[in-house]
Design a protein around this nucleic acid. Sequence first.
DNA 1: ACAATATATACTAAAATTAGTATATATCAT
DNA 2: ATGATATATACTAATTTTAGTATATATTGT
Lengths: 127, 127
Amino acid sequence: MEASEIYKCIADPQRLRILNLLEAGPLCVCHMQEILEVPQVKMSKQLSSMKQLGLLKAHREGTWMIYKLVDPVEGLITANLCYLREAACAECNQLQRDLTKREKLILKVTKIDNDCPQEVCQQITCC
Amino acid sequence: MEASEIYKCIADPQRLRILNLLEAGPLCVCHMQEILEVPQVKMSKQLSSMKQLGLLKAHREGTWMIYKLVDPVEGLITANLCYLREAACAECNQLQRDLTKREKLILKVTKIDNDCPQEVCQQITCC
DNA sequence: ACAATATATACTAAAATTAGTATATATCAT
DNA sequence: ATGATATATACTAATTTTAGTATATATTGT
């Protein structure tokens, strides 16, 4: 994968936020949608472009599609997420807030709604 | 400066190469042009967009315009150049080759042509 | 004042990216 | 088979980015 392709990808704040979320663990489309507050089409298209690029893979669980980072994670991605988490900028705060929102959402859909893909809720200490 | 703006900038291989060159020291437009082998218009436009973004600054020395990175260099740029120099990919090799080409060119214009901006040739051990 | 060199800008055409609406597909529960 | 939910795709319109040609400006040397 070319560095320039990766940069083009993370040059879009939304795509960067997706990578940030997925680094913490797999997620299904609708949950990412809820965290980022974007229309379904947009989310779906961005995910598919990132999958095509080779950064993400997906599999189905029921009606859900679970997306995750390919393993091993592209080093350039890791390095930049790592940098941005330390840094102090508007975008960086957003990334942190997304992670918090992710935690809460997974807890909710797991414990309260009891309606969460296996692979996602497995991440919770007590599921 | 927003991270996404910086990523958009370095998503263009040519702009990345410019930053890579300038991290080694200031250069005038025509020398960068020669190293990267691009038409004058393109070089000029890319430089001006990067200056506008706030990554570069420029001053005149005779008919030359000398460009350099603003000080302090944007951390995200430094981190990425650093990463790419260590990495093994086509783009990374290009960056190395550019630096070598830069060394040779500066030596030539300084010692042989004797036609080099002060600030550029000052970098040479013996000028 | 004039020519040469280095660089920048205006303008236009071409290409790439993004966004939106509608529609399609897959899976599950009834 | 039908309806509901989650997701993907086709198509189009709008926007942004890039590239190219021509021209302008600034500086220097004659």
